[in-house]
């Protein structure tokens, strides 16, 4: 029997926790909340495969684990491949009468480094082969675990320890990889962007991802106070703000073709200016220097354009 997703507070309070206290994620990190919300969507027996990264390291420092689900980590770039092995093995052993559970959900989790960059080949392979796996990327915008280095998920204008803002550089100059759409281009049955602030949207989408046959992808925006130089208490607010400025709009893509803007993004009358987002974080403060005024302007135009393109894809005039 599948358990319902918990969307109302009373139901959420009853749902078993999957990640306990005592983990060593930084204060204010949004990733544990993301995992908690994932837990609210679960429908029964689940196995988690994780890549190397903040969440992996800080939740399983031997001899302690914060995980209450069967959980495996092998390496940085291979959770999608490990998960492929898990799901196929479970399925075949069930056929052979060596696996008693009727159904097991397999979830792979990776950060932006493990997903956008080093693990991308494995993810693409997993999608192409069509395993019934939910892959969730918690995207905190850089290799935060190794000390805030730029990744394919880093925003332009963001300062990291490998994309310094200096006299001649405004931080990262390149675009962020459009990962959700790249994943969708595999004709993946279900792709959704989420953030932990909009928790009901998150849980609803994660549940859809579990229920869809074949692979599904969840791109979760995950504020990182340590790396972003933001206030620890502001993480949920920043997740919302990133949606409001258009840096992490909320939408779904079905079968790679059908786009649907999600409520919080759909209800925006217009995007808030990027300045509102940038001023909350030390990693963007250099952008307010006069020498980067033009660069800043170009980034705003880029986001405006992306927003219009996305709206068009979603059928919004």
């Amino acid at each position: 029997m599948t358990e319902p997703a918990a969307l109302k507070l009373k139901d959420m309070l009853k749902k078993p926790e999957i990640l306990t206290s005592g983990h060593r994620m930084c204060a204010g990190c949004a990733a544990p909340t993301i995992v908690k919300l994932m837990g609210m969507a679960l429908r029964g027996p689940t196995i988690v495969c994780e890549v190397t990264g903040c969440l992996e390291v800080a939740t399983t420092i031997y001899p302690y684990t914060a995980w209450k689900l069967p959980w495996i980590h092998v390496a940085f770039e291979n959770a999608a491949a490990v998960a492929s092995g898990v799901i196929e093995a479970v399925d075949v052993m069930r056929e052979k009468g060596r696996w008693s559970k009727e159904h097991v959900d397999v979830i792979a989790i990776g950060g932006d480094g493990g997903t956008f960059d080093i693990g991308f080949g494995a993810i693409s392979g997993m999608l192409e082969r069509g395993h019934d796996i939910v892959y969730m990327c918690y995207d905190n915008g850089a290799y935060q675990n190794t000390g805030i280095q730029r990744s394919g998920g880093t925003f332009p204008g963001q300062e990291t320890t490998t994309s310094w803002a200096g006299k001649v550089s405004p931080g990262k100059e390149q675009r962020k990889k459009p990962l959700a759409e790249i994943v969708a281009a595999h004709r993946t049955p279900y792709v959704a962007t989420v953030n932990p602030y909009h928790h009901r949207d998150f849980i609803t989408k994660f549940r859809k991802a579990l229920e869809v046959e074949g692979p599904a992808f969840i791109h979760a925006f995950s504020p990182c106070p340590r790396g972003w130089r933001s206030q620890t208490g502001k993480s949920m607010e920043l997740a919302k703000l990133a949606m409001e400025v258009g840096l992490h709009p909320l939408y779904e893509i079905f079968n790679g073709t059908e786009y649907k803007m999600s409520g919080p993004s759909r209800r925006l009358k217009e995007l808030r200016p990027l300045d509102d987002y940038w001023k909350t974080q030390g990693q963007f403060k250099h952008l307010f220097k006069p020498e980067w005024a033009d660069f800043k302007k170009s980034l705003q135009e880029q986001v405006n354009d992306d927003w219009e393109i996305l709206k068009k894809k979603c059928g919004i005039e």
């Binding site: 390496a75 998960a83 492929s84 092995g85 196929e88 093995a89």
Partner: peptide
């Protein structure tokens, strides 16, 4: 790389 990774996942269950 994924071959050995998938083997580990399968072996782990």
């Amino acid at each position: 790389h994924s071959a050995m990774s998938a083997c580990i996942g399968a072996s782990a269950v």
